[in-house]
Amino acid sequence: MFRSEWDPFRVCDLLRFIGTETLGEVYTMSSEEDATVREPLDLIRLSLDERIYVKLRSDRELRGKLHAFDQHLNMILGDVEEVITTVEIDDETYEEIVRTTKRNIQFLFVRGDGVILVSPPLRAP
């Protein structure tokens, strides 16, 4: 290895860069866990059963445990905290007043078309 840390991103990319497709396959087959990130959705797959952060349209954010997802980013989250951010303008001072509303939901299905960003927990080194 060129790096002291095991970093699947870089090893994977290195193999692709060299263009040794056979090597790439050997690499995939030998890793039983398949902890490689070869396409963006792998990042979500590796977050199953972990708490994730989801940024949604209309200024909503969710934090919850990922129980299921599909290619549309439809998801089922558990122990969810939803934060809604609203900005009001003060009538007199014209100042922006930022308010956040929080609520908790035990199990929630989220339709994928509202998803902007998903961030998994920081993975252990």
Binding site: L41, D42, I44, R45, L48, D49, L56, H67, A68, F69, D70, Q71, I76, G78, I105, Q106, F107, L108, F109, V110, R111, D113, G114
Partner: peptide, 30 residues
């Protein structure tokens, strides 16, 4: 379907382990 944002699910209607397996299968096939 397209106008849905969330569906709040009944707690006993969620089999977590079953969902994990299904999601992994879906990720492999889809």
């Amino acid at each position: 379907g397209s106008v849905v944002r969330y569906v709040q699910l009944p707690p006993d209607g969620v089999d977590v382990d079953l969902l994990h397996d299904a999601a992994r299968r879906e990720a492999r096939g889809g």
